[in-house]
Design a protein around this nucleic acid. Structure first.
Lengths: 367, 367
DNA sequence: CGGAAGAGTGATATCGATATCAAGACCTGA
DNA sequence: TCAGGTCTTGATATCGATATCACTCTTCCG
């Protein structure tokens, strides 16, 4: 009971015995060792023996018992994927592309959701270590606490950070240049004359940013922090108090809705809102509509990533687009690369973002 | 090489040795057997021995080697999830809720995508069997071929069908009453005076329905077939040729776009379109906009499931809503129930759907 | 024709956890 | 004090695949 998990094993009945290597060997009239060599392609076996073993395996429908192989090998062909929410567009798409790349490399993935909770992430990482995964791709929930990830590395398990960076953790990383993308979006808005530009983002964790607490951007998850820094830097050029419309809320669409309603209820409401990602954007768009404002006439909107539905809203949503499929592929590539060469120095893969102007930022202010 | 997968093991270096039960036993000054009993909570161990073992385990940071445990037990605590595309809203959300329910039950999930290809599904099921999963939840790609699923059952692995039924396969099933939901949506459209109602759906498989081939609704995946039957039945009441605007396309948004453009290019174009699911709806909505038509003025639109973005389109999208979270929960529940009692008769869990009227079906025809 | 090199093979140890079994320690009641 | 029982414990078999080692049998060359 050291892992604190109730035993489910009790529920499980014994399986009907499946075909084992021993049975294949018996049918082929050779020893287990010879059968193993014939099937495993190592050592040497005569053509005759090999044929008989392969025939016996095919006839019996032999399939190797993976847990047994993994026990012996000390590792598996599974890659763990730890993200906030598999049902969100960004993580859904990246997980899909990780999965595709994994399949191509002969690996499988095991997905675990954290809802941006550090405690859930720790549990997930430990579970994956217990499973003896070959490696893991993690969208770290905390920018500052990576001890569990360092432990994984110490146990020889490659850790690739996806979309996030963790201070003090020397790991391979893949992320999009969200700061640059946000800067482009801000340049567009500011160029159109917007000055009261809101920013709605989920702060790390499901509880959001404590009201009144001092804002330490460095404590936010890195992709969020990058966007916010770009936002604040751009605003600082043109207004005195850049943090005035910065709304940090808990994780999720509903919280974003509430935060946006609050922004819009102010007498000097923003004329534009930057939604850090597309889940946030859903809340932002609904809040604007419910408050009786029009996009972009009353409020322009930009989202920090690109959901599948960006072109079916009216007006279509301007977004910062990330090469999500490439991110996932690169993440898995870094895992296999590090498996092949565990000692090589860590690399950062930074993929470019672009600003996709659509009609939700379509006009100049007041137009 | 019997499994036809390249060995990735070659890439993997030996791990630094991790803490084993043997080491815990040594440190506690007891035998492996006693340590195992103390940690595993079976047999008996004196309080003193138990304390020393627990202390030793904690001090060394002992964590059980799951592959080894699984080898011995002949099963794992992993549930396989086989769906068309984890990045789509319906499967993304259901997988998420399966995952949550699994976590609560002390289980993990392994997700595999099929893109509705039967061959990919077979490979996925076999992989899961090799992994010795405790059970699997499958959105079967074929309504007629379930041999691989029957094999899983024969090996004692519970198979729960999600959103799909397979002819001749006696398995637990969870699905929403999509036929009833589609009927409600059709009633609404017909009540508004629509007669030329299009239906866009992906036919089973990534290659769609061969043009000119006779349509055998029974060969479509069951959830799609249920919707289509309801659509045809409703239309048959009011028009002579109900299949006239039935467009079956390959899997995916782009194919739906093309199919819809074709429908809209006809001289007697449809005045309403039923999109079988929300991925299809993305293509449908874009096609309507690109063809220069307005929703719902020129073309009314309904989607057969509910994406997160249904309320942010203009106009908001009318949908058939399914209790997706409940579907996922029920699926996992059926897995654990069958693990507990492998012989009980199979059950169907059919959850209700509702028609959520929004503005995309907002007016009567010609209004 | 002797001996070395090499191919082919079976026996066997290993991975780490699980679980049974038999033996020993201890206690109770007669 | 001894028989019968319970509690505790270590030794050991097991799961199935992997991989090494040593032995046998060829083969080939000097």
């Amino acid at each position: 009971m050291v892992d604190g998990v109730d035993r489910v094993d009790d529920l499980v009945d014994r399986r009907p015995p499946s075909v084992t290597l021993t049975e294949v060997a018996q049918r082929a009239g050779v020893s287990r060792a010879t059968a193993a060599r014939a099937l495993g392609g190592y050592g040497s076996a005569s053509a005759a023996a090999r044929d008989r073993v392969l025939a016996a395996a095919a006839a019996l429908g032999y399939r190797p018992n993976l847990p047994a192989r993994n026990t012996r090998n000390g590792t598996t062909t599974t890659v763990g994927v730890v993200v906030a929410d598999i049902a969100s567009p960004f993580f859904g798409q990246s997980t899909r592309s990780i999965s595709d790349a994994a399949k191509a490399a002969g690996l499988e993935i095991m997905v675990l959701n954290t809802d941006e909770e550090l405690e859930a992430e720790r549990a997930a990482v430990h579970l994956l270590l217990d499973q003896r995964v070959a490696g893991m791709v993690v969208a770290a929930a905390s920018r500052t606490d990576g001890r569990h990830l360092a432990q994984a590395q110490a146990e020889g398990v490659p850790v690739v950070l996806l979309d996030r960076r963790v201070i003090g953790l020397d790991a391979d990383r893949v992320y999009a240049d969200n700061g640059a993308g946000a800067a482009l979006a801000m340049a567009e808005l500011i160029g159109q004359g917007h000055r009261r530009i809101g920013y709605v983002s989920s702060a790390a964790g499901p509880h959001g940013h404590p009201p009144g607490a001092p804002l330490v951007v460095d404590e936010l998850v890195s992709s969020g922090g990058d966007r916010i820094r770009a936002y604040l830097a751009a605003l600082a050029e043109v207004v005195d108090e850049p943090t005035r419309y910065l709304a940090l809320c808990p994780f999720g669409e509903e919280a974003a809705y509430a935060a946006t309603r609050e922004l819009l209820a102010r007498p000097d409401r923003p004329t534009a809102v930057f939604a850090s990602d597309s889940v946030i954007a859903l809340g932002v768009l609904r809040a604007i509509a419910d408050a009786g404002f029009a996009v972009p006439g009353d409020v322009a909107v930009v989202a920090g990533d690109e959901p599948a539905w960006s072109r079916v809203t009216t007006p279509p949503l301007s977004t910062v687009t990330q090469p999500v499929a490439a991110l996932g592929r690169a993440a898995l590539e870094l895992v296999t690369r590090r498996l092949a060469d565990p000692t090589s120095p860590c690399t950062d893969v930074v993929l470019p973002t672009t600003f996709q102007a659509r009609a939700s930022t379509g006009g100049s202010v007041g137009a």
